[in-house]
Amino acid sequence: YYVAERVINRRIVLKRNPYYRGDRPAHVDQVVWTVGESEEACLLATEQDRIDHCVSIGSPGVPPTAFRRLAAQYGINRPGGQFFVGSRLQSAYLAFNHDRPAFKGPGQIALKKAINYAIDRPELARAFGYLGGRRSDQMVPPALGRDARIYPLGGADPATARKWYARAKLKPPTLVLYSHNNQRGVAVAETLRFNLKQIGIELDVKYYDFGTAFAKAGTRGEPFDLVLGLWSVDYAEPASFLEPLLNPELRETGNLNYAYFVRPWASARMVAANRLTGEARRRAWADLDADLMRDDPPWAPLIHLTNRSFVSRSLGCFLHHPVYGFDIAAVCKKR
């Protein structure tokens, strides 16, 4: 397929490439992406067979509250079905801005640990909807990382969180959170507000659309303490989960290291891990992930996400893809 038309923020049209001679399938003549539908409107149109699939940057494209009903009504991963769930190379996390006084310096490591103990990961996972993913306290997914279990995954531990908070050199009464102005972002923010209040911290939440939130978070000097991050990778390699997010070469804008976390020892271990191959490489990155979370956490990981795809009754040949959600070239229309 090739891009035949693009109207910014409105429409993208893919058409079959007449010059392609490879063996990849191409069952439909064209694919039309329409931009701008709300999650609710897109879900309704899919159920009515007026469109074939809803997608959204960083989210499934339908309301998180709808997934339990869709699973019950349409089943999960049925041959020729409409609702599919599969693994996804994406992690949700809460980045700590180390340029801010709340997280700057070794005296504030205790605060970072306090937050990791204070947050209720099961409740935060619910914000991503039914079958949304697997809660975690590490950035690298279990298949690539190490199941160290450093912080509680079964719920908040405010008693331990308060003990760590008491050790912090600076105890900020308020932290500023940048979150997303959708249903999921609001739910995460409200859960975090309640969790942090239990240890004596108020949360000042600023809501932005997905792109704006990350553009602001990537601008050095932006006045936030915490940001809800989502990180997707293009291939199953543990370095791709850590290396960009810990890039020590910080710029004025366009940073992916939203934590502004720079530690020479961590950078040296990344360089050393990149010299390795195979299982030794995987273990080196997995150990770095676990050691960071235990000794000096740059963030609070929340959940490793799944792909949940709801398609129209006339769409067939659905093939799950862990990076892109589904294989566009493989889909077909049922006759």
Score class of each variant (00 low, 15 high):
residue 5 E to C: 08
residue 5 E to S: 13
residue 6 R to V: 15
residue 8 I to G: 06
residue 9 N to Q: 12
residue 10 R to K: 13
residue 10 R to M: 08
residue 10 R to V: 13
residue 12 I to Y: 03
residue 18 P to C: 02
residue 20 Y to R: 01
residue 20 Y to Q: 02
residue 21 R to E: 12
residue 22 G to T: 03
residue 22 G to Y: 07
residue 24 R to A: 12
residue 27 H to P: 01
residue 31 V to W: 07
residue 31 V to S: 06
residue 34 T to F: 00
residue 34 T to M: 08
residue 34 T to E: 13
residue 35 V to I: 15
residue 38 S to Q: 05
residue 38 S to K: 04
residue 43 L to T: 06
residue 43 L to E: 12
residue 43 L to I: 10
residue 45 A to L: 14
residue 52 D to L: 02
residue 52 D to K: 01
residue 53 H to P: 00
residue 54 C to D: 03
residue 56 S to I: 04
residue 56 S to V: 08
residue 57 I to N: 10
residue 65 T to V: 13
residue 65 T to M: 05
residue 67 F to I: 05
residue 71 A to C: 06
residue 71 A to G: 10
residue 75 G to N: 09
residue 78 R to N: 08
residue 82 Q to C: 06
residue 84 F to N: 03
residue 86 G to L: 09
residue 86 G to E: 10
residue 95 A to L: 11
residue 99 D to L: 15
residue 103 F to A: 00
residue 109 I to C: 00
residue 109 I to H: 00
residue 113 K to W: 07
residue 117 Y to H: 08
residue 121 R to H: 10
residue 122 P to S: 01
residue 125 A to C: 07
residue 132 G to N: 12
residue 134 R to E: 14
residue 139 M to D: 01
residue 139 M to T: 11
residue 140 V to Y: 09
residue 141 P to D: 02
residue 142 P to Y: 12
residue 145 G to P: 04
residue 148 A to Q: 11
residue 149 R to C: 04
residue 151 Y to G: 08
residue 153 L to G: 13
residue 155 G to C: 07
residue 156 A to T: 09
residue 157 D to A: 08
residue 163 K to Q: 15
residue 166 A to T: 02
residue 167 R to W: 03
residue 167 R to K: 14
residue 168 A to K: 03
residue 169 K to I: 04
residue 172 P to T: 03
residue 179 S to Q: 03
residue 180 H to Q: 14
residue 183 Q to G: 09
residue 184 R to I: 15
residue 187 A to T: 06
residue 188 V to P: 04
residue 189 A to I: 06
residue 189 A to F: 12
residue 194 F to A: 14
residue 195 N to A: 09
residue 196 L to M: 06
residue 200 G to P: 10
residue 202 E to S: 15
residue 202 E to G: 14
residue 203 L to N: 10
residue 203 L to M: 08
residue 204 D to N: 15
residue 204 D to S: 14
residue 206 K to G: 10
residue 208 Y to L: 15
residue 211 G to E: 15
residue 213 A to S: 12
residue 215 A to L: 13
residue 222 E to P: 00
residue 225 D to W: 13
residue 232 S to Q: 12
residue 235 Y to V: 14
residue 236 A to Q: 06
residue 237 E to A: 13
residue 244 P to E: 05
residue 244 P to S: 03
residue 246 L to A: 07
residue 246 L to W: 14
residue 248 P to C: 05
residue 250 L to C: 06
residue 252 E to Y: 12
residue 257 N to A: 00
residue 261 F to V: 04
residue 262 V to Y: 03
residue 266 A to W: 10
residue 269 R to S: 02
residue 271 V to I: 10
residue 273 A to Q: 05
residue 274 N to H: 09
residue 274 N to K: 10
residue 275 R to D: 14
residue 278 G to N: 05
residue 279 E to D: 11
residue 281 R to A: 11
residue 284 A to S: 02
residue 288 L to F: 10
residue 290 A to D: 04
residue 291 D to F: 11
residue 294 R to H: 05
residue 295 D to E: 15
residue 297 P to K: 05
residue 299 W to I: 13
residue 301 P to L: 09
residue 303 I to V: 15
residue 303 I to R: 04
residue 308 R to E: 10
residue 308 R to Q: 13
residue 313 R to E: 10
residue 315 L to D: 00
residue 322 P to E: 04
residue 323 V to P: 01
residue 329 A to N: 15
residue 330 A to C: 15
residue 330 A to T: 12
residue 331 V to D: 05
residue 335 R to Y: 09
